[in-house]
Nucleic acid binder design. Sequence first.
DNA 1: GTAGGGTTAG
Length: 467
Amino acid sequence: MPHSAESLLQLLQRFPKHRNQVQQIHSLIIVKGYLVCETTNGQSSSKWKSTLLYNALIRAHLGFGQTRKSLLLFAQMLSHRAPPNGYTFPDLVKAASSPSSGSPCPGKTFHAQAAKRGVLRDPFVRTSFVSFYAEYGELGNACKMFEEMSEPCVVACNAMIDAFCKNGDMDSALLLFERMPERDVVSWTSVVNGFRINQRFSEAIQFFNKLMSCSVKPNEATYVTLLSSCASLNGWEAVYLGKQVHGYLVRSEIQLNVFIGTALIDFYGKTGSLNAAINVFGQMMVKEICTWNAMISALSSTGQEKEALDLFERLKMEGMQPSEVTFVAVLTACARGRLVEYGLKLFRSMSLDFGVVPTMNHYGCITDLLGRAGFLREATEFVKSMPFEPDASVLGALFGACKIHGTTDLENEVRKELLELQAQHSGLCVVLSNINADMKRWDHAADFRKKIVNAGVQKIPAYSVIA
DNA sequence: GTAGGGTTAG
């Protein structure tokens, strides 16, 4: 029977990646009225019909990144009285964890919904909540979700390992890794990645070597994580290992996919092999915006600012949509190349022409752009005119500029103004004392340390903002 | 149907 609810459901499940088709099917489902739950005839199969269709639609829209639409579909689902089931929540919760889904995040109401519908015992549902809470920095809730599982499977354990890693608790991640009854390549990769995201790059590489010695077969994700660690470490051993991985991938005749390719470009860019990065970029059949961003950064960090900006022009011509990161990369290139006018023009056009709203990072780039070029007063004015309170990165850029341009009266003025502006800001105080210490003005450093105490700043981070 | 991967000044 053409266009029965069953046949449309099958189509959705079979071809969920074809955006236009999904939209057509969606329209057809609406026209046919299949989304309205029928409870009158009492047949259990038709009771769940709209639920299954909604589940498939939520999944399909999540699949091509339309997370907002997934969330909207859930709201519709409730208003149509189609009861969500255990299959509804994993996709829904994933949509809620996605940063593009907008705020406020509805994840917690989903938790309540899942409890109400009696699906919280489902291990798939629980695992997705573990990841959700981990993403939102609520490690306690993630643990609770995990601990209430009677016999967590390897996937649930992997999700919990990742939850620990993402929230900086590598000890617990390793403990769970040791204690779990079986491990797979995802377990290993999650730990490698955990060391990486906690900036423990040497240990990431060590753990990768351990994985190899245990005869675990790495997969693409493992290599991507490893390459990223090698890129950040940048010692000869790390560079050697990264090149070895590349060589292995070439010998295995594995086509460079977007993730691997982007990781390689980043690796070569950060370790100074610009030509290798360009080669990889040229070989890639499919490029995403991240790929272009990595290449732009590679060019700009190796002193080819003009080429970096040319590549940005090419990206636009090829119809790519620049991301937030793209603008950080191009604005940085402008700052390095002292292209003040062009940088300011780009900054103005980013929200106007590309719909990318500047974040604190972008303000930091412009502060850097002005400051490096010696426009310290303009940079200060710019910081004051920002729509949000400057954070340590913006102030770091400003002080970086002061460092380049020497100890002028203006610098002292800037310092004073900013100190008054953000006396409570522990990040700033650290920046200030670092800068002073750096300039061998230990008396001032001590002075600022005292101010930190007087200002009642509780926490002084154990890292320095200026490297 | 649940887990892990790439790009971001100073």
